[in-house]
Computed example of a mutant assay.
Amino acid sequence: MQRRISRKTVRLLYYPTAFAAGLLGGWVLAFVGGLNPAIVPVISAGIGLLVAFGVPIWQNYYINTPKLAIEISSIKRVLSDSTTIAIHDDAELKVLYGEKRRNYSYFGEPELFGRTGKNSGETIDNLQNLLELAKQRLRDLPAQIEDRKRSVEQLRAVNPTALTRYQVDSWNAPLSPEVEFDPSNLETVASDLIKAYEKRLETAEKSYADLQTNLPIAERRIEIVQQELIRKNSLFTVSASLINSGRTNTAIKVPALLRVLIGEGNYIDIKLSLKDFENKSEIAASGTRIVVFESLEISSLPEEDRALINTYWGQSVRAWLLVEDIHGGIAKSGYIAFAEGLYQKIIYDRLARAAST
């Protein structure tokens, strides 16, 4: 960590320096005047002065100071929560709309559907969740179709004249709208129940065919969209441990810098900001703080820098993190690969080697 000499230290140095200069000047004048002054008292006074003032200065500057070190835990490239995709505007993703409707209607919020504008978009995480729901539905539908076929066959075998209100209510349980019970026209009631269950069967079969055809297309589309958004709208989060091995508390400032070295004299600077500054900036003496820094979306960077980031992210290039504390000291981390998960892999490999021995 780079240190700057504080004003307090400069003031402390001023007085002994002036005293020593005066002492030396007086001795020189006495010597020139022929008084033949002794040098030993001057040397003794100088040594005493050095000890008297030097020790407190040394203690203040080297001992009772923060000593900040940084270790990067991970670098991630993510999309912000504000990055959304409108399902309804993308024909290849419309197959997921049914999963969204079923998911939200379960929570009693069908009014969400049909909206336009910002609220109609879905984040990548939500799209992945909808995709998983659709895959699960695809796995469940064959059993549901067989169950509905059996229900239709059972209804066709029912004697209409023997239908009771209790039986009709039982058959009505999964139906919306329900078939009305009319004791004077039981044959029509039975016929309406059969039609309703045949429609349920037809809906399940159509849904199964739709998912079989369009779900792989939607999955590929999500992958393409995600890569496009990451290239244009992603941001970086850097997790790091700040270790203060000094005897004085310190705090870091909000701005930080991630420098990516991509060649001899060639680099990219990514500006970061400390998240949760109010609670995370201070590091106690002999203490450690886990912090997270976050950049703006890379769309805010010059086009040349965006192209370099997209080219070298995940490649064999190195990056390091720099922060400044409230005393003006600059702390630098060690190098880390400019890639997600590679640092963790290195740690796992070290642990595996240790386990083998």
Rank of each mutant, 00 (worst) to 15 (best):
M1E: 06
R11N: 06
R11S: 06
T17I: 09
A20C: 08
A21R: 04
L23Q: 03
L24A: 10
G26V: 10
V28M: 09
L29Y: 11
L29I: 13
A30K: 12
A30G: 15
V32L: 12
G33I: 04
N36C: 15
P37F: 01
I39S: 12
V42I: 11
S44R: 11
G48A: 10
G48Y: 15
I57T: 03
W58D: 04
N60W: 10
N60I: 08
T65I: 11
S73R: 10
S74E: 15
I75Y: 01
V78R: 15
S82C: 06
I85E: 00
I85L: 03
I87Q: 01
K94I: 07
Y97I: 08
P110L: 14
L112S: 08
F113M: 08
G117V: 09
I124L: 07
D125Y: 14
Q128A: 12
R139C: 06
Q144G: 10
E146K: 08
E146D: 13
R150T: 15
Q154D: 07
P160N: 12
A162C: 08
Y166S: 08
Q167A: 04
V168Y: 01
D169M: 04
N172S: 04
A173N: 05
L175S: 02
L186V: 01
L186P: 01
E187A: 06
T188D: 13
A190V: 02
K195W: 08
L201M: 11
T203E: 11
K206D: 14
L211I: 05
T213P: 04
L215F: 10
L215H: 09
A218F: 02
R220Q: 15
R221Y: 02
I222M: 02
E223P: 02
E223V: 10
Q226N: 07
Q226F: 05
Q227P: 06
L235K: 12
S239Y: 04
T248Q: 05
T250W: 05
A251P: 03
V254I: 12
V254N: 09
A256Y: 02
L257R: 11
L257W: 12
L261C: 05
L274E: 07
D276G: 06
E278W: 08
N279E: 09
E282P: 01
A284K: 07
A285C: 06
S286W: 05
G287L: 01
G287E: 03
R289Q: 08
V292D: 09
V292G: 05
E294Q: 13
E297S: 15
S300T: 14
P302S: 07
E303C: 10
D305K: 09
L308F: 10
I309W: 00
N310E: 07
N310A: 04
N310D: 15
N310W: 03
T311K: 12
W313K: 04
W313F: 12
R318M: 13
G328H: 01
I330N: 05
A331G: 05
S333E: 00
Y335I: 09
I336S: 01
A337C: 04
L342C: 05
L342I: 14
I346Q: 06
D349G: 04
A352I: 13
A352L: 13
S356A: 14
